[in-house]
Design a binder for these strands. Structure first.
Lengths: 77, 77
DNA sequence: CTCAGATGTAGTACATGTACTACATTCCAA
DNA sequence: TTGGAATGTAGTACATGTACTACATCTGAG
């Protein structure tokens, strides 16, 4: 349980909403640096935080987090 | 992020499949006691483990884990 | 340049998730 | 009762998630 990673779309979802990390952090009631760490993939959120992130964006957990890499956007999608 | 809890249906899903904790633990590649701790709510799984549990049962994460208590079964479906 | 906000990097302190071991209890079979 | 499997409880050791602070870079406005 150490070298495994979970991919996430937090920054994309946040950009879609047009909110800053500080705003997201405030909504989630976590430190703003925590959001930064998560977006950069420096560590994974707890399940509790993951559920709250998905709830905040009103999407299933699997839309935000995945065991497999998310496909790239940007080129015609 | 300390007094909050995440409810789970691991024991129900496992019972539906008719498998023991040891079998589930082996499938998830975690210690069998870890499954016991999770079922008893003694602590929460990591997001990585939560995603793998949901994948194992072939259901969305929200079916296994929830911020709100799951409704009781047993009395009329 | 100055001023302000968003973001990235570095480090410390503490709480919690997981592995692992040992032993007690409960349930099922003979 | 004996024997085995599943489960519950207790404790140690270590890795990781989160808070929090300080400082640097980048971008936009004047």
């Amino acid at each position: 349980m150490s070298s495994e990673i979970v991919h996430n779309r937090i920054s994309m979802l946040r950009a879609e909403r047009g909110i800053s990390r500080k705003e997201l952090a405030a909504a989630l009631e976590v430190h703003y640096q925590t959001v930064g760490y998560l977006e950069r993939g420096e560590y994974h959120p707890s399940l509790f935080l993951a559920l709250r992130i998905a709830a905040f964006f009103e999407v299933p957990v699997e839309v935000v987090f995945s065991l497999a890499p998310f496909p790239r956007l940007g080129s015609g999608g």
